[in-house]
């Protein structure tokens, strides 16, 4: 939820959310990484084992859109397994200040096989649910394709939250690619998903 007083993310913050889809429950473990340059080298720790990434830019700031492209390259060259990518244009309430056209963003998203949508944290979290629902649905599809070994689905037999292993950031040394600055102005600024699926009957 948008708050004027919210301060930028320090380091990275972590939260989980469970999403019910058709007859499956998807548990998303989300890392929200800080945008400031000094935290930049921490990012690989979070995306290395990720199954999904939300690439969030500010529609009123063209540079933040350019930065997204850098992130995509970085993810493509550093994450070996297939990933669900979503491009998210944030601050859709500030239409009059728009600096990135929706068509351009959608086109870019398509070119990298990502879903595009726009969000606003100001009015009833417009579009935000959609982002997470889409991501969950895409992950479900990905897991059934058996392309991704790190994405696990469980039968109802062992539906026991304690048994589901949690992902962990790796301890690989940080790599440095181009400099990217992301707007860190709300909790949804950038999130790397680490996802597990829980099938129910």
């Amino acid at each position: 939820m948008f708050s004027k007083h919210i301060s930028p993310t320090i380091g990275a913050s972590f939260f989980t959310c469970n999403i019910n889809l058709d007859n499956a429950r998807v548990k998303l473990q989300v890392w929200d990484t800080a945008g400031q340059e000094r935290f930049r080298s921490m990012a690989p720790m979070y995306y290395r084992n990720a199954n999904a990434a939300l690439l969030v830019f500010d529609i009123t700031n063209f540079n933040s859109f350019v930065a997204i492209k850098g992130w995509v390259k970085e993810l493509q060259s550093n994450v070996p397994e297939a990933m669900v990518l979503s491009v998210v244009g944030n601050k859709s309430d500030l239409e009059e200040l728009r600096a990135v056209q929706a068509s351009e963003a959608a086109q870019f998203a398509e070119s990298i096989g990502a879903h595009y949508c726009e969000t606003s944290a100001l009015h009833d979290q417009q579009g935000i649910d959609e982002v997470f629902l889409n991501t969950a649905a895409a992950l479900l599809k990905l897991s059934s394709s058996n392309l991704v070994s790190s994405l696990r689905s469980y039968d109802s037999a062992d539906v026991d939250n304690d048994k589901i292993p949690t992902g962990s950031p790796t301890e690989e040394d940080a790599t440095h690619t181009g400099k990217v600055e992301l707007p860190a102005w709300s909790i949804d600024s950038i999130a790397h998903g680490d996802v597990q699926k829980n099938m129910c009957c």
Binding site: S3, I6, S7, T9, G11, S13, F14, F39, I187
Partner: peptide, 17 residues
């Protein structure tokens, strides 16, 4: 000072150097 100045700690678990 860090805790007092960082509202964002209230919203989620954080991991920071």
């Amino acid at each position: 000072n860090l805790v007092r100045s960082s509202e964002s700690f209230k919203t989620a678990e954080s991991w920071t150097p």
